[in-house]
């Protein structure tokens, strides 16, 4: 069974002195593939991302801009496996005659994970039969006349460990 978990977004970097509200650029939600996972079992975290109208974010591999990146914080007991970004779109920025790989439409990033079945993995501290997975999404967004400074979105999921 797939479960939608609440994504805890602590905020973006440097909001302490913010006066003007941050303009929404990228709607972020997430889904974990199972609400209970056994040791040794694989599961995925899927980020559902929707750029605001006329906004694009830069795809992995672009040079000169800040590509979107999702990283899971390594920890004992958690195996970080493959990370999949979808194919990007091509954005032609006429004033610079430049073609860049971007995402402009809703897209999905999938992170594959597993609970470490090794001895050390099993010995990792757990909280009440759960494991807390922490990750960070960073991205930079522009439209055709303005760019916004890179943003960082801290995220956290709590996954129950199935008794083996």
């Amino acid at each position: 069974m797939q479960a939608w978990l609440v994504v805890l977004v602590a905020g973006t970097l440097g909001v302490g002195q913010q006066v003007a509200p941050l303009r929404p650029l990228l709607d972020v939600s997430s889904q974990v593939s199972a609400d209970r996972v056994a040791v040794g079992e694989r599961f995925t975290i899927t980020l559902e991302l929707t750029p605001a109208p006329k906004i694009h974010v830069y795809a992995p591999g672009v040079v000169g801009y800040k590509p979107i990146a999702f990283t899971v914080q390594p920890q004992r007991g958690l195996v970080i496996r493959g990370l999949t970004y979808p194919p990007s779109e091509t954005y032609f920025y006429a004033p610079l005659k430049e073609t860049v790989a971007v995402y402009q439409k809703p897209f999905r990033i999938v992170q594959e994970l597993a609970l470490d079945p090794s001895l050390s993995g099993r010995a990792a501290p757990k909280e009440a039969g759960t494991i807390v997975v922490r990750g960070t999404l960073t991205y930079q967004a522009c439209n055709d006349r303005v760019c916004f400074p890179p943003r960082t979105v801290p995220m956290m999921w709590t996954v129950a460990i199935k008794e083996s």
Binding site: G64, Y65, K66, Y93, P95, L96, E98, Q140, C142, D144, R145, V146, C147, P149, P150
Partner: peptide, 10 residues
């Protein structure tokens, strides 16, 4: 401006 900003470079 910033180097990651196309309109800035324009």
């Amino acid at each position: 401006w910033a180097t990651w900003c196309g309109p800035c470079q324009v």
